[in-house]
Computed example of a mutant assay.
Amino acid sequence: MHDPGGSPGFHAVVLAGGRSSRLGGRPKARLRQGGRTLLELTLDAVREAAGVVVVGPPDLAVPEGVLRTREDPPFSGPAAGIAAGLRLLDGLPRADWTMTLACDMPGVARAVPRLLDAAREDPDAAGYVCVPPDGRRQPLAALCRSDVLHGAYAGRDATDRSVSSFVRDLPLRDVTVPQDATADVDTWDDVQRHHLT
């Protein structure tokens, strides 16, 4: 499962649910930058993936070939979203790696290649997590060995749990990324800063 460029074979779970409560309920996945939605930008960043699942509401349009599911119950958090995505990916041919991304990071295309490069250079690691210069690990921009990630979620209820609670004990290695690569959109100030509409 390697492309001609030598990138590791991977699946991607893209989280596009959430209540967007600080944005008055406006779905972050549908915010636009340069005419493209945040979801489109995120999916483009993982276009090399062997399989992609978007976890979000049923009325969210996804391109042909992209799978879609929903966390159960709805709005039960990103860890529940990842668990739902992993269940759906079980129906696809195996990939060595699984990437987890939130769709509210407009600059994530700058993070994805760094994760894949790290996995190519050291494929024996359990996984990698993006860390911008401020030092805050971003578990929703990570690449893990598929068996390791599935094992972390197996048999555990992910409802209303943090992603960190599932991966904090995994020996993930830090991958340094630019600050704006994982800067997310939570408030209207963020919307303005990223020039979103």
Score class of each variant (00 low, 15 high):
P58W: 02
P139N: 10
T182E: 07
S146I: 14
G24I: 03
L39I: 01
G107E: 01
M105R: 15
R110K: 14
T98N: 04
L101M: 01
D90E: 12
V108L: 06
A126Y: 13
A158S: 01
A50W: 11
L116D: 00
A95Q: 15
P113V: 05
V55H: 02
Q192I: 07
H194E: 05
T69G: 09
R145E: 14
D157E: 11
G6C: 01
S164D: 13
S20Y: 01
G9Y: 06
G151Y: 10
R110Y: 08
C144R: 12
T182D: 03
V112P: 00
G18K: 01
E64Q: 11
A12N: 05
D186P: 12
V177Y: 04
A12E: 01
Y128R: 09
G91A: 15
P132F: 15
G34K: 00
A126L: 13
S162P: 14
D147K: 11
P58E: 10
P63A: 01
R137A: 15
P27M: 00
A29V: 02
T197L: 13
C144V: 15
A142I: 14
R94T: 14
G155E: 05
D147Q: 10
D72A: 12
A61L: 09
D147A: 13
G5K: 08
G5M: 15
C103V: 14
T182C: 12
E40L: 03
V112L: 00
T187A: 05
G127E: 04
V131N: 00
P63V: 01
P106K: 04
P63H: 03
C103I: 10
W188P: 08
L101H: 01
L92N: 05
R22S: 04
V46L: 03
